[in-house]
């Protein structure tokens, strides 16, 4: 270890370049450096024009999703050494347009997020002494709140890649987080939006999202939960109609 590595990084400025190309940098990472630290060093020492997102460097802000030697992950949580390779190929997240180098256009991802009404809709005003919610009833919610909205799942999803209307794993799992919350009171009508191939029924259940999620959220569990909820609500309605 600790020898020079070759970093082959996808470069593209749609305002200037005809098409994306790979640029190679020789760089010697320090022991235990993450891919993000290596990218920063390369930028700082060799090529300040190299563009990528970053912020927290501890896998909690969701900025630095990218493809590293073929695997989608957050660059800050991957140690260079762990790749056991002296060639490191870095590409931007797929399924999203490149804005520049490793910057991708996250807007389709955020649009899907906004679509599901990503906020708690509690009944009434703030209760005087707060809500009373047993921790047990929050357990389903806790699985999903670790999501950092990095779009790794969205980028890995085969359905999202072929169908731009599909809301994708993160948004659907977020919706399930809210309907599982005992404090939420959104009506069934709010779920109807996802009762479609662009919503809960679009998932191919290949579980790429579960595999790539750097926060172990298992978004597909949420999609499955939505499906169960939709079916249960429909069944309930059928029986209500015929007492």
């Amino acid at each position: 270890m600790n020898m020079h590595s070759t970093f082959r990084i996808l470069r593209f400025d749609p305002k200037k370049d005809k098409k994306p190309y790979f640029q190679e940098y020789r760089h010697q990472p320090k022991p235990k450096d993450s891919i993000l630290e290596a990218l920063k060093d390369i930028r700082n020492e060799q090529d300040p024009s190299l563009a990528f997102r970053y912020s927290c460097r501890e896998a909690v802000c969701g900025s630095c999703g990218m493809v590293i030697n073929g695997q989608i992950d957050l660059a800050c949580r991957i140690q260079v050494e762990s790749l056991q390779s002296d060639l490191i190929v870095v590409e931007p997240l797929p399924n999203l347009e490149i804005q520049k180098d490793l910057f991708v256009d996250m807007e389709p991802f955020w649009a899907a997020y906004r679509e599901i009404q990503p906020y708690l809709q509690p009944e009434g005003d703030v209760p005087e002494k707060g809500h009373r919610v047993e921790e047990k009833k929050m357990e389903k919610v806790f699985q999903y709140i670790t999501c950092v909205l990095c779009a790794c799942c969205y980028s890995s999803c085969p359905v999202a890649s072929r169908d731009g209307r599909y809301l994708g794993p993160a948004a659907l799992a977020k919706l399930f987080r809210f309907i599982s919350d005992p404090r939420d009171s959104r009506p069934y009508a709010a779920l109807k939006k996802v009762d479609s191939p662009a919503g809960a029924w679009g998932c191919d259940t290949v579980f790429r999202c579960n595999v790539v999620c750097p926060k172990s959220v298992r978004p597909a569990d949420g999609i499955e939960g939505l499906r169960r909820k939709l079916v249960a609500e429909k069944t309930k309605r059928i029986f209500k109609r015929k007492p």
């Binding site: 906020y119 708690l120 509690p122 921790e135 929050m138 806790f142 919350d181 939420d184």
Partner: peptide
């Protein structure tokens, strides 16, 4: 809490 912060809870739900 009302806005949606998923606080950890004590028995009794507080």
């Amino acid at each position: 809490d009302h806005w949606g912060v998923p606080f950890s809870r004590f028995p009794g739900g507080v």
